[in-house]
Amino acid sequence: MAAGLTFEQLQKKYLGIFLALLVLTALTVGVSFFHFGDVGNIIIGILIAVTKAALVAMIFMHLQFDKAWLRYFVIVPVFFFLAIVFALTVLEKF
């Protein structure tokens, strides 16, 4: 699959991502036991989730090795999601 990588290197990469995901899970659970103000926990939780998601999408789902335009299948819907959430949050203030 991954251009320029041997199967052995690819397996090592997958294992590394797996360990990183476990560490990030432990981190996000650990952090949740502390309180960081009104939105602190939300921001930390989302940042860690986005990091984990990026690792899964880029490596496990091969976006790093595949044609770059495949990434728009993620970017476009996420953009619309953020636009809608932003609009709803702003509208609520009025």
Binding site: M1, A2, A3, G4, L5, T6, F7, E8, L10, H62, F65, D66, K67
Partner: peptide, 8 residues
């Protein structure tokens, strides 16, 4: 050590 083919 076999190299993985490029995704073409």
């Amino acid at each position: 050590m076999s190299t993985v083919a490029a995704p073409q």
